[in-house]
């Protein structure tokens, strides 16, 4: 069925049976008035209850709207936030966020409102609870274990193994074969400069 639909779409698009004039997206809906933009739907109060905070406006409103819009995913885009996207749906959602924040809803309430209809998918970052915590715990655990292994490696390798001490120079031992021409020629001078630097400050 999927394939039939896709084929149909392709056919229609190419023969442009329905395309009267090129229609430019992002300018599709009716322009909303300022009042329309700030009105909340009846469903809001059913979903997240009455607003508990004080109404907000001005720069504080803009700042919080932008921060929240970065946390909410644009449903018609691919992986962009409502803040980043220029799609009409995203701009509508941003206006909705602004209306909610202006009415005094908290960040968490706004997120819950969108989550009620779109699901957890709408959050740009998983809610930090329950199973989701794994997305932080797994990397943290891996980094911790890695750090432990690294520390042990440094400790283990730091102890010179018997039979090698004799070849060691005070600067540690380099594999002779790997010394580049530059190091053979310049090495002593660079060492000297380092010594000079050291004596200069010491």
């Amino acid at each position: 069925m999927r394939i039939t639909a896709a084929l149909l779409l392709t056919m229609m698009a190419t023969t442009s049976a329905w395309g009267q004039s090129p229609r430019w997206a992002n300018d599709r809906g009716e322009d909303a008035s300022a009042e329309q933009l700030l009105t909340l739907g009846e469903d809001v109060i059913d979903t997240i209850g009455p607003a508990t905070g004080p109404p907000l406006q001005g720069p504080a409103l803009a700042a919080r709207t932008e921060a929240l819009a970065s946390e909410i995913r644009c449903p018609v885009c691919q992986g962009q936030s409502v803040q980043a996207s220029t799609a009409e749906a995203a701009r509508n959602m941003k206006a909705q966020i602004e209306a909610l924040v202006a009415a005094g809803y908290s960040d968490e309430e706004v997120l819950r409102y969108f989550e009620a209809s779109y699901g957890e998918f709408i959050r740009m970052m998983p809610r930090a609870e329950g199973f989701n915590l794994l997305v932080w715990i797994i990397p943290a655990l891996a980094l911790l274990l890695g750090a432990l292994a690294t520390w042990r490696t440094i400790r283990r390798l730091g102890v010179e193994q018997p039979g090698q001490g004799s070849q060691s120079t005070p600067k540690g031992q380099l594999k002779a074969a790997s010394l580049s021409t530059e190091e053979k020629e310049l090495g002593p001078w660079i060492e000297q400069i380092r010594t000079e630097l050291e004596s200069g400050h010491g």
Partner: peptide, 14 residues
Amino acid sequence: DVGGKVAVAYGVYG
């Protein structure tokens, strides 16, 4: 649905 508020309330993706 001016401003798409009802579409948001229903979770319309497309």
